[in-house]
Amino acid sequence: MTIDVAHQGGAVPAPSLRRRPNLLRRIVRHWNDYAYIAPAIVVMLLVIGYPIYYTVELSFFKTPPNLAMSQKVFVGFDNYRAILTSQSFRDVTYNTLIWTVVSTFFAYVLGLGAALALNREFLGRGVLRAVLLVPYVISAVAASYVWKWLYHSDFGVIGALSVQFGFTDEPINFLDNIYTALPSLIVVNIWKEFSFAMIMLLAGLQTVPDQLLRAAQVDGANTWQRFWHVTMPHLKGVSMVTILLLVVTNLNSFIIPWIMTGGGPAGATDIWITQIYQMAFGRIRFGMASAYSVILFIVMMALGYFYVKALTRGDEAKSE
């Protein structure tokens, strides 16, 4: 056996064997890896990429009611102008803001309360948690009909109870009154989604180090101070993501207002999405509705930016 001795010391510069492959070469070299994600990419392109492109395109056209797209007429920014200057846009935006902000606020606060109360071992904790999550799991359509029945103007149990307890003289017409309709729907929405906030925050609470709480206790912090100075800072990240997701979900809600009031009475519960749907599939004005969608879309993109940021905080440090 020969003795191979390489007389290179550490100081010998590395001979340049090959250059850093350029992008194309790297892609070609990794084509095998792309095969794994190809199905996902194809589906996403088909169902997301193309629609986004097409929506933007349509938003500059006036579309015929028979949806023969070869007959669409280019109108530039007319659709946008028409929407942004209309009175109804302002009303609907106002409703959308109320709907989103109030729903999100209460869902978060109730969720936080529930999470804190549940973050302790007691008999029936698991069952209680499961029960609270049921509204989140069931179909929004079913939930809407159930609440529609609860709110029923003549035979609704809520109206009956309010008379029974003497709050009102006769059953309230919750859904047909322009002042009570939106708040009534917001209650349903909160009912449906507060447990989502709860479950997220409950998971977030698991990350609060017990030692820190105990240390704070030793330092003489009372319950509130411990919550505010120890627990809350640890929930910051989860809260961000939760609130963002709630906001997005609420901006996107459709089923509850659509089933329960159809946007009525007199547009009192009309929000962006119901408006878009109505415009597209009620009045068959796809161009206009597309422009509306793009506006919504831009709002979403801004939120999406924060969402990804909140989701990947600390991830950069980890990856590569």
Binding site: L23, R26, I27, H30, D33, Y34, Y36, I37, A40, I41, M44, V47, I48, Y50, P51, I52, Y53, Y54, T55, L58, L245, V248, L251, N252, F254, I273, I276, Y277, A280, F281, F286, A289, S290, S293, L296, F297, M300, M301, L303, G304, Y307, V308, L311, S319, E320
Partner: peptide, 28 residues
């Protein structure tokens, strides 16, 4: 795997969460 565009692809996949069903409704 580490392949070019991996991060971008990943986030575009995630962004699907953000978009309202109705936005996709007409083109789809």
């Amino acid at each position: 795997f580490r392949f070019p565009g991996r991060q971008a692809l990943f986030f575009s996949v995630l962004l699907r969460n953000m978009f309202p069903a109705v936005v996709f409704l007409m083109p789809l």
